[in-house]
């Protein structure tokens, strides 16, 4: 027995498995796809049938009309990230996938809140909105509509602040994200 003697041997003990572990954090995938009918269905359907949960998903045009951009967030604690991206890559209409590094990424979503407020409470809510650099976009005697842009964390913090006043409705777009610096996402 004994250890391998030549450079042409290796110790099997030392081989390490490629990790397929769950990362434990939220992932933002930026997926460049061909701008063709049915592409969104293919992406969404893939997540559904592989049992991957989508947290948010946005689709929109890009600077080049041949392509669309899907920004999708999911929980890396629940799903092995590389299985998700490898399966996505198998879709013929998917051209490029970036698993965005949180530190190198600017992420934003837009949210609209309809809050039931009357009298003195209105001023209080509008003040909170100002602190969050939001906008008041509609006011009636018994309600206001507020617009907030920011990261998911910021939107959620704002929600926690206004919910006690009487949140009638909330609508969120889900995040879009772009990589920092000169290079393309």
């Amino acid at each position: 027995m004994g250890e391998p003697a030549t450079k042409d041997r290796l110790s099997l003990e030392d081989l390490e498995a490629t990790t397929n572990l769950r990362s434990g954090r939220k992932h933002i995938l930026s997926i460049l796809v061909e701008n063709k009918a049915g592409v969104l269905t293919r992406v969404a359907g893939l997540f559904a049938r592989r049992g991957f949960n989508i947290d948010t998903l946005t689709v929109g045009p890009t600077e080049d009309e041949q392509f669309s951009r899907i920004t999708l967030t999911f929980d890396g604690a629940m799903h092995p990230v590389d299985q998700v991206t490898k399966q996505l890559h198998k879709l013929i209409n998917v051209l490029k996938i970036r698993d965005l590094e949180p530190n190198d990424t600017v992420a934003r979503e837009l949210a609209l809140f309809k809050v039931a407020v009357e009298g003195p409470q209105r001023a209080e809510v509008m003040q909170i909105c100002e602190i969050f650099r939001g906008k008041v976009v509609d006011v009636t005697r018994r309600s206001v509509i507020l617009e907030i842009t920011g990261t998911t964390d910021k939107v959620e913090a704002f929600e926690r602040m206004v919910r006690p006043f009487g949140l009638i409705e909330m609508m969120r777009t889900g995040e879009i994200a772009i990589s920092r610096g000169r290079g393309e996402t």
Binding site: A17, N20, Q87
Partner: peptide, 22 residues
């Protein structure tokens, strides 16, 4: 066992069993 996994479909590698040499 350690695993060598050869496949033309990258998504098969480490899907069910993590590969040591993919």
């Amino acid at each position: 066992a350690k695993f060598i996994h050869i496949d033309v479909d990258p998504a098969e590698i480490s899907k069910n069993v993590p590969a040591h040499i993919p």
